[in-house]
């Protein structure tokens, strides 16, 4: 754009400043995890690794982490299946109520989490009469994770069009063969990206989880939130937070790897 040099510099400066503010709080958590002060006085009063040691040996944090990973894995598998089906239906067929269906898929993330949370809690405990457990968390998470897979798959299907599938059908491949050999390979990297997002979304979720978790099922966010206000647990919570910040680089790295072969069109037809 034809902006003056000064305007460009100003924009660059603003961008830099905002990025600084974005990373400052995250950096603070990392620094505080080595801070000897339990009330996190700034500047730090000294360096210690004992909080990391304490967090590593915290059984509560470990159990919560394991549970969160399991929930996220199950929720992701369900949303991969349902999201792909919905994407294929909406992108490859024209039918009455198509707009309503796409709105319905967005609804669980468009509505405030607390609404989805109490609605599902009420449905589980009062209508169906089942007690809250591990599986009620999975069901609740899958409900709002479907949209991430759906969005990625729809975008990919729209981009590649239906010609290859039609060609496959014309050449005599059946519905399942076409899906296995043509549609699925085209979708693969989009599904990976959608699945990754869905996993992260589930792993991180707290509001819906609060309402749908059974008594013995504490996910990591629930554990963090419960222990955050306990002064003697504060350093351990801070270490867990710091570890999560470091871990959040993993999906970024994976997503970058995925977008490199983003043109995941079938290159080698078997």
């Amino acid at each position: 754009m034809t902006l003056s040099r000064n305007a460009r510099l100003l924009l660059a400066a603003v961008t830099g400043l905002v990025l600084l503010v974005i990373y400052l709080p995250l950096g603070l958590v990392l620094v505080n995890s080595f801070n000897t002060s339990t009330s996190f006085t700034w500047p730090p009063s000294g360096f210690t690794t004992k909080w990391w040691d304490a967090a590593w040996h915290s059984a509560g944090a470990r159990d919560a982490l394991a549970l969160s990973l399991e929930v996220a894995a199950f929720a992701t598998v369900i949303s991969l299946v349902l999201g792909t089906m919905a994407a294929l239906a909406l992108q490859r067929y024209r039918f009455f109520g198509r707009d309503a269906v796409s709105l319905l898929i967005i609804l669980p993330i468009a509505l405030p989490g607390i609404v989805t949370g109490i609605a599902l809690q009420n449905a589980f405990t009062k209508i169906l009469g089942i007690s809250l457990s591990f599986w009620t968390i999975v069901i609740a998470h899958a409900t709002f994770c479907i949209v991430t897979v759906f969005n990625n798959a729809v975008a990919r299907l729209r981009r590649v069009g239906g010609n290859l599938e039609e060609a496959s059908m014309d050449l005599g491949a059946g519905t399942f063969t076409t899906f296995r050999l043509v549609t699925f390979p085209m979708l693969r990297s989009a599904l990976l990206a959608g699945g990754l997002l869905s996993f992260a979304l589930s792993f991180d979720e707290i509001i819906v989880t609060t309402f749908t978790a059974g008594a013995g099922s504490q996910t990591l966010p629930l554990w963090i939130f419960e222990n955050m206000f306990r002064p003697n647990q504060a350093p351990v919570v801070n270490v867990v937070a710091a570890a999560l910040i470091v871990l959040s680089i993993v999906p970024i790295w994976l997503a970058q790897r995925l977008s490199v072969d983003d043109e995941g069109l079938p290159t080698a037809a078997p």
């Binding site: 707290i206 966010p221 955050m228 937070a241 999560l244 910040i245």
Partner: peptide, 10 residues
Amino acid sequence: WASYLVKAYA
């Protein structure tokens, strides 16, 4: 990608 809770906590 960083956790919602972690950011609020920060």
